[in-house]
């Protein structure tokens, strides 16, 4: 369980997020949605200790994020941001091996290698394993980074816009992989998503943010509602029922 209580973060006087309190359930996919500048990425960064908080507390699986040992936290929670530019030249395999650093501190044992192989197989990267990241497409790189996070083998996985750079096919594959991780391995996954239809189709619950506050938090089904969405995005978003699924049509 991730418990966020009265969390605030300011940038040069402006509020990134203010007074956010939130409980994210275990073994489920939770998506953060909301307009640009609503504080989705900021909230994710503060939860994952990438940004220090100004006020409030975050507890992940009972560990206080601002007080716990960083290495112990790294065995419990992993975070992947949306821009992943590297200044070093790495192969896919080498990148994924970095995921084992919290467990092995750089010296891989048999168990570490097994986890690396498994993560690479899970993301279908076997053929690209020896390739340098610079030579991959955006989508392939994205999958390689997700594989690193999988190799880290944490109970909680936080992803900032994991569908960035991915085409339709790979977006669907990515969401299916994440779904499998929760259903089969019981992982708790928190995502920032821009496409509310993806959020609707794969999440268990959705947190809507607006102006740095939680506008609404509920099960995916109840959040995909014209009135709720209107309140979040300030535009009309008709919701249609298609094949038993709710689909938002916001294109025009």
């Amino acid at each position: 369980m991730i418990e966020v209580s009265r969390l605030s973060k300011r940038y040069n006087g402006n509020h990134g997020i203010r007074d956010v309190s939130l409980t994210i359930g275990k073994g489920a996919i939770t998506s953060f949605i909301g307009p640009n500048g609503a504080g989705k990425s900021t909230l994710l960064s503060v939860i994952s200790r990438l940004l220090p908080m100004d006020e409030g507390t975050v507890r992940i699986g009972g560990m206080d994020v601002s007080k716990s040992d960083s290495r112990e936290l790294a065995k419990v929670v992993s975070i992947l941001k949306q821009s992943n530019h590297l200044n070093v030249k790495l192969t896919v395999g080498e990148l994924v091996e970095f995921g084992r650093f919290p467990h092995s501190a750089g010296r891989l044992n048999a168990e570490d290698r097994r986890q690396v192989d498994e993560a690479i197989r899970y993301m279908e990267l076997e053929e690209l394993r020896g390739k340098h990241l610079d030579n991959l497409s955006g989508g392939q790189r994205q999958r390689a980074f997700i594989a690193m996070v999988l190799a880290q083998d944490t109970e909680y996985i936080l992803l900032d816009e994991p569908l960035n750079n991915l085409d339709l096919k790979h977006s669907v594959q990515m969401m299916k992989v994440l779904r499998r991780l929760t259903d089969e391995l019981g992982k708790t996954i928190v995502l920032v998503l821009h496409d509310i239809n993806f959020a609707a189709a794969y999440s268990d619950s959705i947190v809507a943010l607006k102006d740095g506050r939680v506008a609404r938090h509920g099960a995916a089904d109840e959040m995909i509602d014209p009135a709720v969405l209107q309140g979040i995005y300030d535009i009309d978003i008709p919701v249609h029922e298609l094949g038993g699924r709710k689909v938002c049509v916001y294109f025009r």
Binding site: S48, R49, L50, D69, S70, R71, E72, L73, A74, K75, S78, I79, L80, K81, N84, H85, L86, N87, V88, F98, G99, F101, P102, G106, Q152
Partner: peptide, 17 residues
């Protein structure tokens, strides 16, 4: 080695950056 990945990855991987 981990620091070479940049701050965010290093923090994620448990380095007291």
């Amino acid at each position: 080695d981990v620091l070479a990945l940049g701050r965010e990855h290093a923090v994620n991987l448990g380095v007291p950056y």
